[in-house]
Write a protein that binds this DNA or RNA. Structure first.
Length: 470
DNA sequence: CGATCACGG
DNA sequence: ACGCCGTGATCG
């Protein structure tokens, strides 16, 4: 059935979302400029100390001290040609083609080298990682204050919109943000030593609300499995009150199916809660590993990729055989996943595209009709991902418009500052009916009719860091 | 201006 | 060419 573009436009509520986006851009957000400046000074001091340590390290090893640590070429020459360290066969995204002379020095590659190094070399590699982390924070602390407009607020630019006006947008209907890129502000506590999100503060008399859709793309897949195959397993796994899905998967995969042992007994002997407990780091690592496999599979990754992206304790890739066993076990644990993969492949070979939730059509003809098996595989990966990524964008877009058009919320003073794919950041006056506002937000964010229920967590605080972790 | 690296989802 | 979608700083 063919649907007119006007009908698609209406179904997706694009005009409603656009209006809410424009309002978000106008709202802007308050930046703690003093915090940025203080932290930047602190970070630059640490940068200088780290640089000095790196230079001393070079001199001690008998090399000239003026190398540019931001240059992969110069660092590669130093580590591999001058110091004789073996180049890493792995990096964050997988294999390194050493036969072709390819070299990688991202953090994953440096970690591999580090684990095969003398203590003196480790010192230098650790300092290099440190330097990159510090500079990563300085990037934001230094530039963010420059975006404060005459009204005292920062107005990041959002999409989607045409390329012509230089605004941001995506083929999946997700938003993007630029000038500044507020969607990329560090959040990982292990990486973000300067807590840049603390600079995103509520204006005077306001508080910040951070509302997050829980495992949005997994819920959408659960919905699709019910609709396509009447398979309720995944929907049940993400239902309210169900245990954490990645813990359940780790227990099933490594315990029930692979019979691995940790802390002296088979993994399936542990209660599912232990997989998130700091007292059981071995179980936490299994949970983290299966979480990576889960999301990788959702986006079309295979055992070939997991063979290098999954590492043992010494950073050695686990290899394709071990990866295949883990993937097979996860398929056994959640059969809807391989079933969905096969369905999508059949579908794109028949229809040369894949639909999204809002009636969007992802055209894959160029990939599926080329006769090239590699391009067909590429199409398969895109097609697996598209319903989830586009579905998430549709759901969050509708919630965004519903919240914006809600007169009661507007009168309470609720104003959207940011949208980050599955998360909203609002400011609201401290005098507002906060419990009522949160309840209404929760209602709008869970109203999309899916067969697997949406769930929302809402945090509150004086800044993005606090509110996001509350 | 393409490649590398890093950040988010 | 074996993980999807993005923005941006920096190097050569």
């Amino acid at each position: 059935m063919l649907v007119s573009s006007a009908e698609l436009y209406k179904r997706a509520g694009i005009d409603r979302v656009e209006t809410a986006i424009v309002n978000m851009e106008q709202n802007g957000f308050k930046l703690d400029v003093d915090f940025c400046n203080r932290s930047r000074v602190d970070a630059e001091e640490q940068e200088a100390v780290t640089l000095e340590r790196l230079n001393d390290w070079l001199v001690d090893a008998g090399f000239p001290r003026d190398i540019n640590w931001a240059s992969p070429l110069q660092v590669a020459k130093l580590l591999h040609d001058d110091m004789g360290m073996p180049p890493s066969p792995v990096w964050k995204k997988g294999r390194v083609n050493l036969a072709k002379g390819e070299r990688k020095l991202d953090e994953a590659a440096l970690g591999w080298i580090r684990n095969r190094s003398e203590p003196s070399v480790r010192f230098g590699l650790d300092e290099l990682v440190r330097l990159r982390r510090i500079r990563g924070a300085i990037k934001y602390l230094g530039k963010l204050p420059g975006y404060v407009a005459p009204d005292g607020l920062v107005h990041s630019v959002a999409g989607p919109a045409s390329d012509a006006d230089q605004r941001a947008g995506t083929i999946t209907w997700r938003l993007a943000a630029k000038n500044p890129e507020v969607m990329q502000i560090p959040t990982d506590i292990k990486k973000d030593w300067f807590r840049v999100r603390k600079a995103f503060i509520a204006p005077m008399g306001h508080t910040l609300l951070v509302a997050d859709e829980k495992a949005l793309e997994v819920v959408i897949l659960g919905h699709l499995l019910v609709r396509l195959f009447d398979d309720h397993q995944l929907a049940d796994m993400v239902a309210p009150g169900a245990p954490d899905i990645h813990s359940t998967n780790a227990r099933l995969v490594f315990g029930k199916f692979l019979r691995w042992e940790r802390h002296g007994r088979c993994v399936d002997q542990f209660p599912v809660e232990y997989f998130q407990s700091d007292d059981y780091p071995e179980l936490q690592r299994l949970r983290q590993a299966i979480k990576e496999v889960w999301y990788g599979l959702m986006y079309g990754k295979s055992a070939y990729g997991f063979a290098t992206s999954l590492r043992d304790d010494r950073d050695n890739p686990i290899g394709e055989e071990a990866a295949s066993k883990i993937v097979a076990a996860l398929f056994d644990a959640v059969p809807g996943v391989p079933r969905y993969q096969s369905f999508v492949l059949d579908y794109i070979q028949q229809h040369h595209g894949i639909p999204g939730l809002g009636g969007a059509w992802c055209d894959l003809r160029e990939l599926t009709q080329s006769g090239d098996q590699w391009l067909l595989k590429k199409a398969h990966r895109v097609a697996q991902n598209y319903p989830m990524q586009n579905g998430g964008a549709v759901i969050i877009g509708r919630a965004m418009a519903d919240c914006y058009e809600d007169k009661w919320l507007w009168d309470q003073g609720l104003r959207l500052e940011r949208q980050v794919h599955d998360e909203f950041n609002w400011r609201v006056p401290e005098t507002a009916d906060l419990a009522g506002v949160k309840a209404r937000i929760r209602q709008h964010m869970t109203s999309y009719p899916l067969t697997a229920p949406l769930q929302v967590t809402i945090g509150q605080g004086a800044n993005w860091d606090e509110a996001g972790n509350a």
